[in-house]
C-alpha cells in the first residue's frame, strides 16, 4: 500500500532534507495489517540517514515528536497500534528545535 510521509520541524534533516516521501509498504510477514509500530521501524531502516536518536526512542518516536495520521493526533487513534490504510498521510513534526 502507498503512504505519504511528511517530516517537519527539523526532522527532515534526518532524511536528506526531503520533507515529503511517497512510499510503498507491506504488512510484515504473516501479519494482516500494517500498524504505526511497523511504520516506525520501516522509517528507521529506510528513511532515516543520520542521528536516529532524534527520531526514535525505544520502539516509539522520541517524546516531543508529534505524529498525525490523516491530520489527526495519533494520541486519539491508538499511537503505535494505529492501523494504517492505503493512501494514508502520516506527519512527523519535531517540537524540539528552537523557538
Amino acid at each position: 500500500m502507498q503512504l505519504t510521509l511528511e517530516f517537519g520541524g527539523g526532522l527532515e534533516l534526518l532524511c536528506e532534507s526531503v520533507k515529503i516521501h511517497k512510499v510503498n509498504v507491506d504488512p510484515p510477514n504473516g501479519a494482516e495489517k500494517f500498524i504505526m509500530k511497523d511504520l516506525l521501524s520501516w522509517v528507521h531502516t529506510n528513511l532515516i540517514k543520520e542521528r536516529p536518536e532524534m527520531f526514535m526512542k525505544g520502539d516509539s518516536v522520541r517524546p516531543g515528536v508529534l505524529v498525525l495520521v490523516n491530520d489527526c493526533d495519533w494520541e486519539l487513534s491508538g499511537q503505535l497500534d494505529t492501523t494504517l490504510e492505503d493512501k494514508d498521510v502520516v506527519v512527523f513534526i519535531s517540537t524540539l528545535h528552537g523557538g
Binding site: N70, D71, C72, L76
Partner: peptide
C-alpha cells in the same frame, strides 16, 4: 485547509 479524508481511526 488540509484535506481530511473520512477515516475509521479513533
Amino acid at each position: 485547509e488540509a484535506v481530511t479524508k473520512p477515516t475509521k481511526k479513533g
